[in-house]
Amino acid sequence: MSVNDALLRRILSTPDDIPSAPLALKLLVNRLRIQIRANPSFLTGGVAELRDHLRQNPQSRAIFATL
């Protein structure tokens, strides 16, 4: 499944809950959001880390198909 950067950026740039996401995804997204709020230039790095996580974790990947 390919996930576009716009969706990943949106997820990381908003404070919205992801109620249907598995715990791993919620915790990772929360950590990346904090890093990005502290250092906005980390957004690109955050998107890359989130994309890498989705490649590795099928449960997180599955939820992205529904977002």
Binding site: A24, L25, L27, L28, R31, D52, H53, Q56, N57, S60
Partner: peptide, 11 residues
């Protein structure tokens, strides 16, 4: 812990 690379990749 939350910063360890790939920590969240599996349970």
């Amino acid at each position: 812990g939350a910063d360890y690379p790939h920590l969240f990749d599996q349970p």
